[in-house]
Amino acid sequence: MSTIILLTLTGLALAAMYFLLAAGLSLIFGLMDVLNFAHGAFFTWGAYAAWWTIAQISGEFRASTPAFLLALVVATIVGAVLAAAVEVGLLRPLYQRPIYQVLITLGIGLALSQLTAVIWRPDARTFPQPRWLADTSTVLGARVPNNRFLLILAALAVLAGMLLFLRKTRYGLIVRAGAENREMVQALGIDVDRAFTLVFALGGALAGLGGAFGAAYFGSIDPQFGSVNLIFAFIVVVIGGLGSVTGSALAAVVIGLAQQFGNYYTTWAGDFVVVLLLAVVLLVRPNGLLGRLR
C-alpha cells in the first residue's frame, strides 16, 4: 500500500514537471505552429539559474529557504527573457517558413544548452535545496519527499492560472482566437506578433520554473537536463492534443504515473510504456485526447 502511495505521489510530481514544460510547448504550437525545440534549453537554463542563485546566496552545498524561493523567481524570469529574446531576435524573420523555424529552434536549443556547459562545467552538479524540502513526510505509511508536494501544488496553481488567463483576459482571448485563425485576428486590428512574443515568454517562464523544480525533483542538473525531459514533454503534448492546456495536464498525469509505476518493476518498463501509450493514442485518437480535429 505504502509503495503505491509513494509511486502515485512521485508520479504526480513527475507529471507536474512535465506539465510545466508541456503547457508552454502546447500553447506555442497552438498559436504559432512552432514546434519549439529550444524549450528544453529554457528548462535547462531555469535549472542553472536556480542553482546559480542559490550558490550566490547560501553557497553551493546548502540552500536557505529564501535563497530557494528567490531561485524559483530568477529561474522563471530567466526562462521568460530567454524565450522572448529568441522569439523576437531569431524566430520572427522566419514566420513564412515553418520548417526552418523548427530547425532554428533546434540549433538554438543545442547552442543554449551547451552554453551552460561552456559557462559552468559540462558535468552534473548537485542541486542544493532547503532541508525541509528534501525531508520526507509520511502519508499513509509512505515516506514522500516534500519537494514532490511543492511541485504538485505549483503545477496546480499554474494550471489554474493559465485557465484563468485563457478564459478571462483579453490576451487569453487573443491567444485562443489566434490558435484558430491567426490571420483573422490580425484582420480585427490586433498585433499578433505581440501575442506571439507574450506566449513565447509565458512558455519560457513556465519552462524556467519547471527547470528549477525539476532540479529539486532529481537533485542534480547537467547541460542535457532539458533535452531529456523535452522528449517526454513532446509525448505529453501529442497525447494531450496540441494547443490544449487541459489536455496537457491530463496527459502529463497519465505519463507521469505510467512511467513511475512502470519503472518500479524494471528500469526500462516505464519509458517503454510511455511510448506504447503514445502508439495506442495515435491509433485511437490521432489528434490527442483533447485535441481539436484539424
Partner: peptide
Amino acid sequence: HRIVRRGVGYVPEDRDVFGGLTVDENLRL
C-alpha cells in the same frame, strides 16, 4: 492590424468566425 486600426472593418469571404469562442467573445475580441 495597422490598416484596420485606421478604421477599416473587414468581413471575410468565409466569415471566419472563431468557432471555439462564444458570440460575445468574438465581438469583444
